[in-house]
Design a protein around this nucleic acid. Structure first.
Length: 586
RNA sequence: GGUCCCGUAGCUCAGUUGGAUAGAGCAACAGACUUCUAAUCUGUAGGUCCCAGGUUCGAAUCCUGGCGGGAUCACCA
């Protein structure tokens, strides 16, 4: 990006020496030149028209001539309306390319001191993961990877909601209807097994409720719900039998989660269990009471007044002294700061909790938490189906394991039609289908900006044409195919006669470091996803138009080979940030 | 009702701090495999950028007011 600084400098100097007016570099608006015009970089001259008292065309012409004279890398210019389009010399592009090649960390930012924590996933232990968790997981994972690529040290953590009434419901149903079923005895994946009893619980509760209503006793609580509450109390009293059952069933769930996470390529540096943290935060409330940050109502409940922050009064301790979600979150935030010393913490949580996090961050600020300024809620929208919302009651929730199975199957079907990898050993084929299927699922979810709710169309998600993960993988596979065909690697020294398709690809590759920085700053993996697609598309055009292996001379062959290989490396590097693996063939 | 988010092609989505004639994919139609893998490429068609004002050389983008959709406003998590 040196050249950009040179050009900006030339614009400032040009306006000074041509018109005797002073401007600041950051007033200069520049853009990549649009495809339909000739040039590589465009300077918008409108902002200076009034200042220098010339027409936009006149100003553009004079400034263009000045820049061309001053900056060696600028070969020519043209002016359209108020837009000054500058073209760079071929040798500039070639030397740019050489410096990209020379840096084996190309794209990654310099190491930054600030450590960052990303919290994501945070499942309940009463049912298996579903599509919504997948979006959460992918966002969290790739945001963390983006921050790493930008130069930060990053810690990935999850909070597991392993206690509470929800797990007691599964437990009570298992006690009644389970007949001792275990994952080992029935072969059912642990999280699905526990989820099954949660469903059984709900059915039973509904049935009991219906009877009560029919008997005119609709105010009464269903017996099974009372039983679940009783379990929760026993759990809190540390009843050994209940604690053991709880441990056992949670253990099944964790084994199930681990399998899902593994297939999804997700892991964590540390897990926080709610059963261990749900009492944290009480001391903070006590302390805050002393400092008048909180106030106590007559019934003994503790609140904070956030009205001047355009929020409400918020409860932080119940009248019986037990904590609420907010209390735990206050405590957990401090705990994590103690564990990792991260002043920047990102919470990847759905947008239905926007209000909660606003309040949480505001309270931490008022409690003078040293990390308060670095808190961020990466809020994302719901995943809907073409038929509308996913509803567990109507059984329309898309199960994570089923979905992964389905997309991999679809990849297999497509692959077998094409017969490109038929001869490979079964093990290799399985690995390729896995990469293509899971990769496409990931791409499908990551290409949409986090804050937008999205429509998940199952048919489209398994389609492998167009703007998909498979499209990008295919471009990568092409780069590998070329590499395999090359018996000896030609040495790239110099090249003249840059083809427009080659230049377009170079220019695309040149943007990679910027994309990492921008996407990381915005916590937006979708920006990387879009860029990766554009890069693959640009490569495909190059591949189609410029025959790499049939280059007219050794110099061209060496250049194209290097360009091909480097493109493959960048695709792999960028997709890795999205958590998507590249197959060598497909 | 208060607060927050979203509204761009039939559908799914891009669109940098305001910049040129608003772009991709899918679906539709028409082409390109004797070629480095056609999971690709090329072309045609498709738009009241929700509406109305305002700011300015210039607005999908910023401001105000509407309309439509969603979320949230629990001693739930």
């Amino acid at each position: 990006m040196e050249i950009l600084d040179q050009i900006k400098g030339a614009v400032v100097n040009g306006i000074q020496s041509l018109f005797d007016k002073t401007i600041n570099e950051n007033q200069i608006i520049h853009n990549e030149t649009r495809k339909e015009f000739e040039g590589d970089l465009t300077i918008v001259v409108f902002p200076f028209v009034k200042l220098v008292g010339k027409s936009p065309i006149e100003l553009g012409d004079q400034l263009g001539a000045y820049i061309q004279k001053e900056v060696d890398a600028v070969s020519s210019f043209n002016v359209v309306k108020g837009f000054l389009n500058l073209s760079f010399t071929e040798s500039h592009w070639i030397s740019e390319f050489k410096s990209m090649l020379a840096n084996d960390q190309y794209g990654f930012g310099e190491a930054k001191e600030e450590k960052v924590m990303v919290e994501f996933s945070s499942p309940n232990t009463n049912k298996p993961l579903h599509l919504g968790h997948i979006r959460n997981n992918l966002l969290g994972w790739s945001t963390a990877a983006l921050l790493e690529a930008a130069g930060h040290e990053v810690f990935r953590v999850q909070v597991i909601n392993d206690r509470g009434i929800h797990i007691c419901k599964s437990m009570v149903a298992w006690q009644r209807f389970g007949n001792g079923e275990t994952p080992a005895s029935s072969g059912l994946k642990g999280d699905h097994l526990v989820g099954k009893y949660y469903v059984l619980y709900s059915d039973e509760e509904k049935a009991q409720k219906a009877i009560l209503v029919a008997e005119g006793k609709d105010k009464e609580e269903p017996e099974i719900l009372s039983a679940a509450r009783a379990l929760l109390i026993k759990w809190e009293e540390n009843d050994p039998e209940i604690r053991n059952l709880w441990k056992e069933m949670n253990g099944w769930v964790y084994a199930g989660f681990d399998a899902s996470y593994k297939r999804l390529g997700i892991s964590f540096d540390k897990n926080y269990y709610e059963s261990e943290t749900y009492l944290l935060g009480k001391e903070l409330v006590e302390e805050g009471l002393k400092n008048d940050k909180f106030y106590k109502k007559e019934d003994g409940s503790v609140w904070i007044d956030l009205e001047d922050a355009k929020l409400d009064h918020k409860l932080v301790l119940r009248s019986d002294g037990t904590s609420v979600y907010m209390t735990q979150d206050l405590g957990t935030a401090h705990e994590r700061y103690k564990d990792f010393g991260t002043k920047r913490m990102i919470y990847v949580v759905g947008d239905e909790q926007n209000y909660h996090f606003k309040a949480l961050f505001e309270i931490l600020k008022r409690l003078d938490a040293p990390f308060a300024a670095g808190l961020y809620h990466l809020s994302y929208g719901m995943v809907n189906l073409p038929t509308g919302r996913m509803k567990s009651r109507e059984g329309t929730v898309v199960d994570a394991d089923d979905l992964m199975e389905e997309v991999v199957k679809a990849a297999k079907v497509e692959s077998e039609i094409r017969q490109e990898i038929e001869g490979l050993p079964e093990e290799n084929k399985l690995s390729i289908w896995e990469k293509v299927g899971i990769g496409s699922l990931k791409y499908f979810l990551l290409r949409v900006q986090p804050q937008k709710s999205m429509v998940f169309n199952p048919e489209e998600s398994v389609s492998l044409n167009g703007q998909t993960g498979a499209f990008i993988q295919y471009a990568y596979v092409r780069t590998k195919g070329i590499e395999r065909k090359m018996k000896e690697i030609p040495n790239f020294e110099n090249y003249e006669g840059l083809d427009p398709k080659e230049l377009a690809l170079l220019s695309m590759l040149n943007k990679f470091p910027m994309v990492i920085q921008n996407a990381a700053a915005k916590y937006d993996p979708a920006e990387m996803a879009t860029y990766m697609y554009d890069l693959a598309k640009t490569y495909n055009k190059f591949y189609y138009d410029v025959k790499i292996l049939k280059a007219p001379n050794q110099e061209a062959l060496a250049f194209r080979f290097a360009l091909n290989k480097f493109t493959g490396e960048i695709i792999e590097r960028g997709m890795k940030i999205l958590g998507i693996d590249m197959p060598e063939r497909m």
